[in-house]
Simulated scan of single mutants.
Amino acid sequence: MYIQARQRLLRKLVKNFFVGPQVDFQNLYNTRFKQPTEGQPFELPLGHEGSTSLGLGVSVVYDNRHNVLNVRKGLFSELSFLSYRKSWASHYNFDGITFDNRVFRPINRRDVLAWQVYGSFMWGNVPFNMKSLLGGDMIMRGFYQGRYRDNNLVSTQLEYRMLPFGFSKRIGGTVFAAAGAVAPKLGQLNVRQFVYAAGVGLRYLMFPKKDIFLRADMGLTSEGPGFYIITGEAF
């Protein structure tokens, strides 16, 4: 019985485990930087005139989620590596590693506790548009996407989802909190650099058969609020 249980578990793990190639192509053009009319002009970043970036690499993924737009139970974990080289059409030579880990635990039939840890690490001659970005509708809600950017990024967020509320068949809500930081070098990431965000959200069940909600989130930060209306959960 013990051997059979281990075999079933191994087959289940292998079924949800994926390894495959990864390709990333980005082309930035028509860029303009406005220098201050008074005071010392700032140094223009690498790639300020535009750039082409073609990355080739590999991604390792474990994913047993049943519904990526509204996960009620499961685990998602990804580790990827991309290399950008002049020899295959990139303007600059640089590399990057990204990891994304998400855990979803049901509290009861309606409520879910979701947790994400995310990191992005770049090195080499990284153009400004390819640096790690902190903020947006997916993580660190309340800051606009790219409010903070640098070579290295770490962030985490925790969210409690009530989908739906006990008194309604279609209306639900969430509360969430997040923290993150960026730095030019990995060794320079520390707690003092972290910025924080928290917020609440409303949910409306648009497609009951597919268990997909329309989300309306308000993220609060030290710089003010941010509002988002999107189909599907943030992570």
Score class of each variant (00 low, 15 high):
155 S>Y: 02
210 K>C: 05
122 M>V: 00
66 H>N: 12
172 G>Q: 00
134 L>N: 06
143 F>I: 08
72 R>L: 01
28 L>P: 00
3 I>D: 15
49 E>T: 09
96 G>A: 01
101 N>E: 03
192 R>A: 06
198 A>T: 15
178 A>L: 03
38 E>Y: 14
170 R>E: 02
120 S>H: 05
36 P>T: 12
10 L>V: 12
67 N>W: 04
71 V>A: 11
87 S>H: 03
146 G>I: 07
196 Y>E: 14
121 F>V: 09
66 H>Y: 07
59 S>D: 03
72 R>T: 09
87 S>I: 02
39 G>W: 04
223 E>N: 15
78 E>Q: 14
152 N>I: 07
39 G>R: 07
49 E>F: 08
130 M>V: 01
70 N>S: 15
221 T>P: 13
165 F>S: 13
8 R>I: 06
153 L>F: 10
54 L>P: 00
201 G>Y: 04
191 V>W: 14
163 L>W: 06
79 L>V: 13
106 P>M: 08
191 V>Y: 13
121 F>R: 09
150 D>V: 10
110 R>K: 14
186 L>W: 01
127 P>R: 07
75 L>P: 02
159 E>Y: 03
112 V>P: 07
132 S>D: 02
64 N>I: 00
158 L>E: 12
38 E>H: 13
235 F>W: 07
175 V>D: 11
5 A>V: 09
221 T>H: 07
220 L>A: 13
83 S>Q: 04
157 Q>K: 11
117 V>M: 10
196 Y>R: 11
190 N>G: 00
85 R>E: 11
63 D>P: 08
13 L>D: 01
1 M>Q: 14
228 Y>Q: 01
201 G>R: 02
26 Q>Y: 14
79 L>F: 10
141 R>Q: 00
23 V>H: 09
160 Y>Q: 11
20 G>R: 03
231 T>K: 15
70 N>Y: 14
13 L>C: 04
184 P>Y: 06
170 R>H: 05
113 L>S: 06
228 Y>A: 03
175 V>F: 14
33 F>M: 12
45 P>N: 10
69 L>P: 05
166 G>V: 15
231 T>D: 11
232 G>N: 00
82 L>Q: 10
157 Q>Y: 05
53 S>L: 14
109 R>W: 02
86 K>I: 02
108 N>I: 10
27 N>A: 14
133 L>M: 12
153 L>E: 08
27 N>K: 14
46 L>P: 04
10 L>I: 11
201 G>K: 03
7 Q>G: 06
173 G>D: 07
22 Q>F: 09
135 G>D: 11
121 F>G: 06
200 V>Y: 07
51 S>W: 08
56 L>N: 13
92 Y>S: 03
136 G>T: 10
10 L>N: 12
204 Y>S: 01
188 Q>H: 08
15 K>A: 11
152 N>R: 10
137 D>P: 08
184 P>A: 09
94 F>A: 01
16 N>Q: 04
